[in-house]
């Protein structure tokens, strides 16, 4: 069933963040949400895991309307969702190993298993997930403060992947990462979608990543959906904001043609 937004409205005080937003993401699909800062992209993601509730409208994850669930009932939905935050959001009192294994020790996760995982099995999963984000087992005992920002973001991604969620929500996953890891993360999002049928929603400013990885792209502007479509449809869009994003991407590849040096 995927994820569905029905006429969602949200405001913080007098400021309207989301205004009648409706869209649907199918199982296994990768949707990129693009938009300027403050367009409501991160707020959209937080509605899916129930961290924020809509003022009106509804948000469905699978068949469940998460906008009316209590905190207790939401934990079952959250068990299926993995969220990578804009900041690494690692628990700074725990080591990398404890952070990545955090989701493997929650009652909801343990209840979904036939038998509890042994410590060796947990360690194996942690090392496997860290290797997916180009990190070795040498970081296991380090505290988050001993890692660079980019490494912290990768640990955060590994933590999200550890409990094998069905839905992955990325809030600017490649911000602060080097180009090689950025490519690895984009490839990972693509592989998870194609091999494991994981549904991914990626909030980003990066049109280049979106064009490379997305099945569809949604552009938010002034609290509303400006446009939504496949990569080829977005490339042909006449909307100024979309054109600006595309030109910016082109400028990265062909700086001389835009800058007027050649």
């Amino acid at each position: 069933m995927g994820i569905r937004f029905n006429c969602v409205c949200k405001r913080f005080g007098p400021k309207i963040i989301l205004n009648d937003v409706s869209f649907e993401v199918s199982d296994g699909e990768i949707l990129f949400i693009l938009g300027k800062s403050g367009a409501g992209k991160s707020v959209t993601l937080k509605h899916i895991v129930g961290v924020l509730k809509p003022d009106s409208g509804s948000v469905f994850v699978g068949d469940t309307n998460v906008s009316i669930l209590s905190d207790e009932a939401l934990t079952a939905v959250r068990r299926q969702c993995g969220m990578v935050f804009q900041h690494p959001a690692l628990l700074d009192s725990l080591t990398v190993y404890q952070n990545v294994s955090f989701g493997l020790r929650t009652p909801q996760y343990l209840a979904s298993l036939e038998r509890p995982l042994t410590e060796n099995e947990i360690q194996k999963i942690v090392i496997e997930k860290l290797s997916l984000v180009n990190l070795g087992s040498d970081v296991l005992d380090k505290m988050p403060s001993a890692l660079s920002y980019g490494m912290q973001k990768r640990v955060s991604l590994a933590r999200t992947l550890a409990p094998s969620p069905r839905y992955l929500l990325f809030d600017e996953p490649t911000t602060g990462l080097d180009p090689i890891t950025t490519n690895a993360v984009n490839d990972l999002i693509f592989e998870l979608s194609r091999k494991l049928n994981v549904t991914s929603i990626v909030v980003s400013h990066d049109m280049q990543c979106a064009l490379k990885t997305a099945d569809r792209i949604l552009v938010l502007d002034q609290a509303k959906i400006l446009t939504i479509g496949s990569v080829s449809e977005i490339k042909q869009s006449n909307e100024k904001l979309v054109k600006d994003f595309l030109e910016e991407t082109l400028a990265l590849f062909l700086p001389s043609s835009i800058g007027g040096h050649g």
Binding site: C81, G82, H87, F102, R159
Partner: peptide
């Protein structure tokens, strides 16, 4: 720094 949101999203 969204650590509390992360804990919530991990089902705790």
């Amino acid at each position: 720094t969204e650590q509390i949101d992360a804990i919530q999203c991990l089902g705790t």
